[in-house]
Design a protein around this nucleic acid. Sequence first.
DNA 1: TCGATATTTAAATAATTATCTAAATATATA
DNA 2: TATATATTTAGATAATTATTTAAATATCGA
Lengths: 110, 110
Amino acid sequence: MNESFKALADPTRRQILRLLREKDRTAGEIADYFNMSKPSISHHLNALKHAGLVQDERQGQFILYSLDTTVLEEVLGWFLEFTGTGKESETPSSTEPKPKQSKEKNKEVD
Amino acid sequence: MNESFKALADPTRRQILRLLREKDRTAGEIADYFNMSKPSISHHLNALKHAGLVQDERQGQFILYSLDTTVLEEVLGWFLEFTGTGKESETPSSTEPKPKQSKEKNKEVD
DNA sequence: TCGATATTTAAATAATTATCTAAATATATA
DNA sequence: TATATATTTAGATAATTATTTAAATATCGA
């Protein structure tokens, strides 16, 4: 989930998602929308892919990218739970009822 | 909006928001939940504040932080629009119908 | 006013991320 | 098979962000 948040924290990457929302596109086609080298776009696409936000599929010479909404909806869920718009099932409760100086490594919660 | 996304892209900051969701807390109280120096937490609180995600108010010696859900709901809106869960009003359309190599600086869209 | 507590700001450094050019890989086609 | 096209990987560097310790600021209470 952290990967997804980090992937979304970049304007270029959000723009790419927007482009893919319209239709699937090849890496080169995507790159043409930006003033940035193709390797840089490739790097961003890779970040999105690792976050599970897009999928890629080779089609001959080209590599076609498409949106994967699954993870996106998980993140949406995070916001719904947070803003209280969603179902009121889970009682919100922080990691510990009382402040504590645990020296343990932060365990990923979201 | 970019500020908000960047602010949300950090586990510590998301945890802080979670803590503030339960109730308002002072900077020190928040810091006690983390294995991190107070200046670091102060830095994160500042990031959240700049993003408009939290507010602060001095109360005597202490500074009380509270959640500001306004921006959070804007971000939620972004996701709703994106995942198509929201109102179908706006026709999705990328910046340009056809790819173009504009050398202009990226104008912030979201 | 002085000393203690709460918090932030400053300055330095470490860690992460973004970006580029050049080279490598994969596929298509002449 | 050789050449061109599409894309990624490598390696280097620049830019941003996170973190720490030390110092500064603000408030409280004796």
